[in-house]
Simulated assay, not measured.
Amino acid sequence: MAKLEEIETEEHQKAIIISKRKRTKKKYSIIIPTYNERLNIALVIYLVFKHLQDIDFEVVIVDDGSPDGTQDIIKQLQNVYGDDLILLRARPKKLGLGTAYYHGLKHASGDFIIIMDADLSHHPKYLPNFIRKQMETGASIVTGTRYVRNGGVHGWNLVRKLTSRGANVLAQTLLWPGVSDLTGSFRLYERTAFEDVVSSCVSKGYVFQMEMIVRASRKGYHIEAVPITFVDRVYGSSKLGGSEIVEYLKGLFYLLFTT
Rank of each mutant, 00 (worst) to 15 (best):
I74W: 03
T258E: 12
G96I: 05
R215F: 00
A108S: 15
A2Q: 13
R89N: 15
Q13A: 14
E6M: 11
M212N: 06
G65A: 07
S237F: 10
T173Y: 10
L52G: 02
L85Q: 14
Y189N: 02
G152P: 01
G98R: 04
I115C: 12
K94N: 14
N150F: 12
V197T: 05
V153H: 02
I223T: 03
D68Q: 06
D232C: 02
K250D: 15
S140T: 04
S66L: 07
S121A: 14
K133N: 00
R89E: 15
L240K: 09
L87T: 11
D117Y: 05
H123P: 05
G69H: 05
L87N: 10
T173C: 03
G144F: 01
T9S: 14
A108N: 11
V226C: 00
S29H: 08
Y28D: 07
V234Y: 09
H122A: 09
M1H: 14
I16C: 07
D119Y: 03
D232F: 10
E37N: 14
Q78F: 06
F257R: 11
T259G: 01
L252V: 06
S121C: 15
K106C: 11
I141P: 05
T192D: 13
Y126S: 10
I61E: 05
R149E: 11
V246E: 13
S109R: 09
Y126N: 11
R23E: 13
E10C: 05
K22V: 09
R187E: 05
L120Q: 11
Y102T: 13
A216K: 01
P128H: 07
V202H: 08
T229M: 08
A42H: 01
Y101F: 15
N40H: 09
W156G: 00
G69Y: 06
Y254T: 12
S66V: 08
G236S: 09
A118T: 08
K133V: 00
I86S: 02
E37G: 04
K239L: 14
G96R: 02
L88M: 06
R38M: 06
E247T: 09
L52Y: 02
L39Q: 13
L77E: 07
V62M: 05
Q78P: 03
P124R: 07
Y221F: 13
K22W: 07
Q53G: 00
R21M: 13
L87H: 13
R233A: 08
Y147V: 01
I45V: 15
Y46V: 01
Y221D: 01
D181I: 00
Y235G: 01
L120D: 03
Y102K: 15
G205R: 10
Y35H: 13
E244R: 04
M210L: 12
V234Q: 10
R91E: 10
Y206T: 01
F208C: 01
H107M: 13
